[in-house]
């Protein structure tokens, strides 16, 4: 996993979102949203339901093309590219409602996550060249290491659908880590978790950050968000309402009134 700690590359922006707008029919989901993500940080996006957070994720991941604006990842424009290209460039994601491969084991889920970092195709799978066996072996070792990293070492051979919900969340993060991303997009990873699991999640995200992975986090759990984020972007009705450190956001009058519905 590449380590690009902030100390080594000061001021480096891993991603710049510039003036992104997106409308669905008459609904303006995002309106001229701009922000930058510092490498090695946890950057949170918060806002009430319908603020445009999920749309933002889908645009970054290539699921939607923006109506206008640019998404720049490591100096390259990525808006409108195919999802699999974006993943192989080093961005990965998890879903708000956990989307695992239910009939596959936990280990296999993580192995599928390594898809873009392996290259065996139809013919080589049948031929089983020596390099294919090597690749498979290395992929398994890596997958086991990642399972261990998220604390699921012992569950490797259980079908993912049989795991408790909290573990499924962690497994999905493991799968997203398997593509060796430099930027991870996590869509409400704490939802459905109990207090203990949320605590563990917070620790895991800090560990991931320490491995040099930048995180873009959408989350409703405010105490978690405030505790681990470096910056917070507040979206409201598709617009950027405020941005700043957790302390600044907590003290921001506009944010408070938007959340309490007194705009």
């Amino acid at each position: 996993m590449s380590i690009s700690s902030p100390e080594e590359k000061p001021f480096q922006k891993v991603m710049k979102v510039e003036g992104v707008s997106k409308a669905f029919g008459g609904i303006q989901a995002l309106q001229d949203v701009s922000f930058q993500i510092e490498a090695g940080h946890i950057h949170a996006v918060i806002g009430p339901n319908g603020a445009g957070k999920t749309t933002l994720f889908n645009i970054i991941m290539g699921a939607y093309a923006p109506d206008s604006g640019r998404v720049i990842y490591k100096e390259k424009e990525i808006q409108g590219r195919k999802v699999h290209e974006i993943v192989s460039m080093g961005i990965s994601r998890t879903f708000q409602n956990v989307e695992l491969f239910g009939s596959l084991t936990a280990l296999e889920n993580v192995l599928v996550g390594r898809h873009v970092r392996t290259r065996c195709g139809f013919l080589s799978a049948v031929a089983r060249w020596p390099w294919v066996k090597e690749e498979e072996k290395a992929a398994r070792e890596k997958a086991l290491e990642i399972l261990d990293f998220v604390g699921l070492k012992k569950t490797g051979h259980s079908r993912s659908v049989d795991l408790p919900f909290g573990w499924q969340r962690f497994l999905e993060i493991a799968r997203a880590l398997a593509s060796e991303p430099q930027l991870m997009l996590l869509d409400e990873p704490a939802s459905g978790l109990n207090a203990v699991e949320t605590q563990q999640l917070g620790e895991l995200l800090i560990h991931i950050k320490e491995r040099g992975v930048t995180i873009l986090l959408v989350e409703h759990d405010m105490s978690l968000t405030m505790a681990i984020s470096n910056e917070i972007l507040v979206l409201h009705q598709g617009r950027r309402l405020a941005e700043g450190s957790p302390r600044e956001i907590q003290d921001n009058e506009t944010v408070i009134s938007a959340y309490l519905g007194k705009v």
Partner: peptide
């Protein structure tokens, strides 16, 4: 594995690349 992942969730399979 990729084929089976497609069977379980096409959305997730695309999302892992």
């Amino acid at each position: 594995r990729a084929l089976r992942s497609l069977h379980d969730s096409e959305r997730a399979s695309a999302a892992v690349g």
